[in-house]
Computed example of a mutant assay.
Amino acid sequence: MAKIERIGIIGLVHDHIWNYLDPAKTLENCRIVCAADVHAALRERVAAELALGPEALYADWRAMLEKESLDACLVFAETALHAEATEACAARGLHVMAEKPMARTVEEADRMIAAARKAGTRLMINFPIMWNPDMRGLIDAVLSGAIGRVWMIHYRDGHKGPRELGCSSYFCDWLYDREKNGGGALMDFCVYGASVTARILGRPSSVYAVSGNLVKKDLAVEDNGVITARFGQDAIAIIEGTWTQVAQGHSISFFGEKGSIASSAFGPREYTINTPGEGARKLAPATLPPGEDKPIPYFVKRIREDRPFEGIASAENARIAQEILGAAFASIAADKPVALA
Score class of each variant (00 low, 15 high):
Glu99Gly: 10
Val75Arg: 08
Arg269Met: 15
Met130Gly: 00
Leu325Ile: 15
Gly8His: 10
Trp18Glu: 02
Asp218Glu: 15
Arg199Pro: 00
Glu28Ile: 10
Arg122Trp: 11
Pro276Ser: 14
Tyr20Arg: 11
Val191Glu: 03
Thr287Ser: 15
Ser260Tyr: 07
Ala265Glu: 13
Ala36Val: 07
Leu123Ala: 01
Leu94Thr: 10
Val300Thr: 03
Asp306Trp: 06
Trp61Leu: 04
Ala48Asp: 13
Leu175Tyr: 14
Val215Pro: 00
Asp177Pro: 01
Phe254Lys: 08
Gly182Leu: 04
Gly259Ile: 04
Glu68Leu: 06
Thr244Leu: 07
Ile320Asn: 04
Glu179Tyr: 10
Pro128Arg: 12
Gly311Met: 10
Gly202Cys: 08
Tyr170Ser: 02
Val33Ser: 03
Leu74Asn: 05
Leu175Asp: 03
Leu27Thr: 08
Lys3Ala: 12
Ala220Asn: 08
Leu340Arg: 01
Arg6Thr: 06
Asp173His: 14
Pro337His: 10
Ala36Trp: 08
Glu49Gly: 02
Lys294Asn: 13
Glu5Phe: 06
Glu99Val: 12
His95Tyr: 05
Val226Cys: 12
Val142Gln: 01
His82Gln: 02
Glu222Met: 11
Glu84Arg: 15
Ala24Asp: 01
Ser69Gly: 09
Ile10Leu: 07
Gly291Ser: 02
Ala220Tyr: 04
His154Glu: 14
His16Phe: 11
Arg156His: 15
Leu201Ile: 09
Ala313Trp: 03
Gly212Arg: 08
Leu288Ala: 05
Ala237Thr: 00
Lys25Ala: 02
Lys100Ala: 02
Phe127Glu: 06
Leu50Thr: 09
Leu186Tyr: 09
Arg43Pro: 02
Thr86Glu: 06
His39Gly: 00
Tyr176Gly: 02
Glu55Phe: 05
Ile296Leu: 05
Ile312His: 04
Lys3Met: 14
Ser331Val: 06
Glu78His: 14
Val142Lys: 04
Leu74Pro: 01
Gly279Pro: 11
Ala72Met: 05
Ile227Gly: 00
Pro289Ala: 11
Pro162Thr: 11
Pro128Tyr: 13
His154Leu: 11
Trp151Gln: 03
Ala90Glu: 04
Leu70Asn: 07
Gly291Arg: 04
Trp18Asp: 01
Arg62Tyr: 12
Ser211Phe: 00
Leu214Gln: 07
Ala119Pro: 07
Tyr271Leu: 08
Gln245Arg: 15
Val210Gln: 14
Arg31His: 11
Ile238Ser: 03
Pro290Val: 10
Thr197Gly: 01
Asn213Gly: 02
Val221Tyr: 04
Ala265Tyr: 07
Lys3Asp: 12
